[in-house]
Design a protein around this nucleic acid. Sequence first.
RNA 1: GAGCCUGUAGCUCAAUGGCAGAGCGCCACACUGUGGAUGUGGAUGUUGUGGGUUCGAAACCCAUCAGGCUCCCCA
Length: 425
Amino acid sequence: MSVKIQPVKGTREFYPEQMALRNFINDKVRAASQAFGYVEWDAPYIEPISLYAAKSGEELVKKQSFVFTDRGGDEVTLRPELTPSLARMIAAKQGELTFPVRWWSFGPFWRYESPQKGRSREFFQWNIDLLGADSPEADAELISVAATFLRSVGLTPERATVSVNNRKLMISQFDALGVPPEKRMDVSNLVDRRSKMDADKWDAYALEIGLTQSQLDGLKAILGNYELWKESAELVRLFAALDALGVKEYVKFDPNIVRGLLYYTGTVFEAFDMSGSVRRAILGGGRYDNLLADVGGQPLPAVGFAMGDVVIGIILQEAGLVPEFQPSPALVLVTVFDENLRLQSLSLATELRRAGINAMVYPEPAKLPKQFKFADKMKMKVALTIGPEEAANGQVAVKSLRTGEQVNVTRDAAVEKIRELMLNA
RNA sequence: GAGCCUGUAGCUCAAUGGCAGAGCGCCACACUGUGGAUGUGGAUGUUGUGGGUUCGAAACCCAUCAGGCUCCCCA
């Protein structure tokens, strides 16, 4: 009796079509990263749990990590994020690296959460970081990389935008309202929740955490003031740089963006899909100037962001931006006319491959209609046939599956004819 | 971790306690030297799984698994 073994909850199986989407995202990520001079790197997929204990927050470590004890008795985990590994690796070579460091990575991560739309337990994530530069122009570069990626996959500014804010600006605004420093986190949390709660409940919650009515009114004024960035010298420089970088239309200031992570110190940003069904951030990041010092390295300013493959994958599919799937990497089918001519088909295919053309041979001498139907389903461009006539004359029948035109050429001329048809296809 | 919704053919979905169906797709033939179009015919299945109620369950009840939505968190 066979029992169906299901895949682990929250994992995805990548059939060729899904694999093509994953590779499409990976290719665009690589191109956007390399266009700005970032170099690829990676860290171990299994890490000691203690690596995350310091800075990642209890939620991530205790509830969302795949933790297990290895045979030696050590507590390890499948990595839930990359930044702690980055901090460790940078700190270890801080004396020999040439700064500023520009690194990117695209790899698997695991988080033990309940799977739902836009979230799985095993996912791929693009991480990209610039370490050793603390200017607003450096922040702008990362935002520009993000916008360049969005543009490269065909997402227009109407469809996807990057919302930007600055933690320092918000803190100074909170201070001006008379919010005590120990309440900053609570207020940030409050801001983060605004879009998810009813207005009345949000007001009540604000008063509950200790804001006065006048502070609440002041906070609302701040969150509705989309010109507030003009009061931040950093943001003024940031937007000037974004203009020069040619991505201004993708970016807007939004005082409601605060982001959950504790370690952000200045600029923070998130990209959203404005029209799709996924109400989750496509990517998010910001400046984290204290992290290296916090994990024992020399102080080092840093800015970066991360993008998961799940949300962007859904958005690209919904927007119809995923390239048509090509079922076979071979665009040429060599048919097999009959048993006697089978070896001629095999040797013809070999000639094509030696000329650099991917070619597939039908595995058996089936009826020609069946073989042509197969080529059609595989979305191939060209079908070749060597029948008794062609074999007698040293020729090959070359048919374009797009136009339906067929010509007989000598075997020597076949490669050139196929190249011509594939260019036009 | 908590609450709610869903699960029927490969896919999208019907059937509300009384013979499990349609469209699309698939296979064969028309067409034994040529795909897409058309026509004709064919197969779709332990109704997620396991129990229970009932003369009778796809439907009602319980459990379980999977998926979705929300809270939480975040990519």
